[in-house]
Amino acid sequence: MRRINQIIRYAWVICSIALLTQCDKPDPGGEGQDEPLVFTRLTAARDTIFTEDTTRLSAEASGYNITYSWWVEKGDLIGSGPEIIFVATPCTVGNNPVTCTVTDGNQQSKSLKVTITVF
């Protein structure tokens, strides 16, 4: 009897965890799924900087369940989401196009570029 009680208790804990985890999952037919993906703009606080300097990049987009992906050939990108920091490392002298791709929950994606010039 004690063993059965123990099993029931464990099962209850596991079910509770499973239910709580379920809450985080996106609703497949959820609200806003029909919202179109719009990538309004990608801007840099300063688009001309010196090495050893930084500039903040911001992406403005709307849509359903958006993720922001960032890519640059040279230099470091710190952070994640709609705002990141570009770090002008010594190898970035010249033009550095930074690409931001927004992808929505329907797997639609759009990209924009902003060029940071480093002296």
Partner: peptide
């Protein structure tokens, strides 16, 4: 490799 959808610089 990307971390949080941000590609790591090549030295990383």
């Amino acid at each position: 490799m990307e971390v949080n959808h941000v590609r790591l610089p090549f030295d990383m």
